[in-house]
Write a protein that binds this DNA or RNA. Sequence first.
DNA 1: TGACAACTGATACTAGGTCTCACTACACTG
DNA 2: CAGTGTAGTGAGACCTAGTATCAGTTGTCA
Lengths: 152, 152
Amino acid sequence: MSDIDLIIQRLELRGHRVTQSRRRVLDAVLAQPAHFTVDDVLRATRAPRRRQPPVGRATAFRTIRLLLDLNVLCRILLDDGTLHYRLSTRGHHHHLVCRDCGRVEDFTQCDVEPLVRELAEAMEYDIDAHWLEVYGRCRACRQPTKEPARVR
Amino acid sequence: MSDIDLIIQRLELRGHRVTQSRRRVLDAVLAQPAHFTVDDVLRATRAPRRRQPPVGRATAFRTIRLLLDLNVLCRILLDDGTLHYRLSTRGHHHHLVCRDCGRVEDFTQCDVEPLVRELAEAMEYDIDAHWLEVYGRCRACRQPTKEPARVR
DNA sequence: TGACAACTGATACTAGGTCTCACTACACTG
DNA sequence: CAGTGTAGTGAGACCTAGTATCAGTTGTCA
Ligand SMILES: [Mn+2]
Ligand SMILES: [Mn+2]
Ligand SMILES: [Zn+2]
Ligand SMILES: [Zn+2]
């Protein structure tokens, strides 16, 4: 079963309609590089070679929000402060982002849970959420010899 | 030496002029609760009891940015995704935010450094930055008996 | 096949922030 | 203490990333 069918299945399972507009947004999302903004997606639905009509801006935002709720997408906080979106199947996880090529690694293992528990104890807080993003340069981008393939 | 004098000293040290507008923004910043937005500060410079003229919006944003560069302020990412500002003397640190009363604890100890180093090794990344915010409820806010003092 | 709710998209609006540019006021120089 | 050049200011336009409104459309199910 293809990616798009799996996502459509998840939509239907939650009682959401699978409309033409949502299909168009999904197509555009699946055609994106490692991560993207909502306007990247919107622009993609407007790409000249697409014969289908473009979706409205509100619908693009609404659909991305829906996909976020369904855990089809996750959000990445880039180091410049902008939020990007990315396909994701997992639940809670973190990102390691290469600031040169934009590559992203998800990580759940090597986790901050023990650290957070320790903090909870020390501060007497009841901790229920955290946000962690890590920035650096991947191996390929440190290689001075070959030009790194820009992931986005 | 008062807080404001220390900040002014830091401004002068870096070759910035200490203007009336900057003083007004500083006054407003020092009068804020635990954390605040730029518009909170802007509103404060416009408070009716202040006899001084209010600062322009662009100047408020420029001054906050400058104070951020001088490490007089730090940014806090709230769990609703909004950015707030907060007085800070330290360099790199993280925040533990109570989502009920808005109280914030800075933490540097109990750090993520080892975790980040481990990640760097495993992923072969050259890591140079990270962002961590933790959300929960402080002890006072878990106390059902007394109404918690809302910090902001 | 119709009814009805879910969905759409144009458009207005918001928050948070930057840019431009003519004007002002610091702070040093003599 | 006056003169001068540059840093800083503020009005306002503009920008990005969204949300709200609402009349019209479409998908679903009886
Ligand atoms: Mn992810
Ligand atoms: Mn802080
Ligand atoms: Zn890279
Ligand atoms: Zn609290």
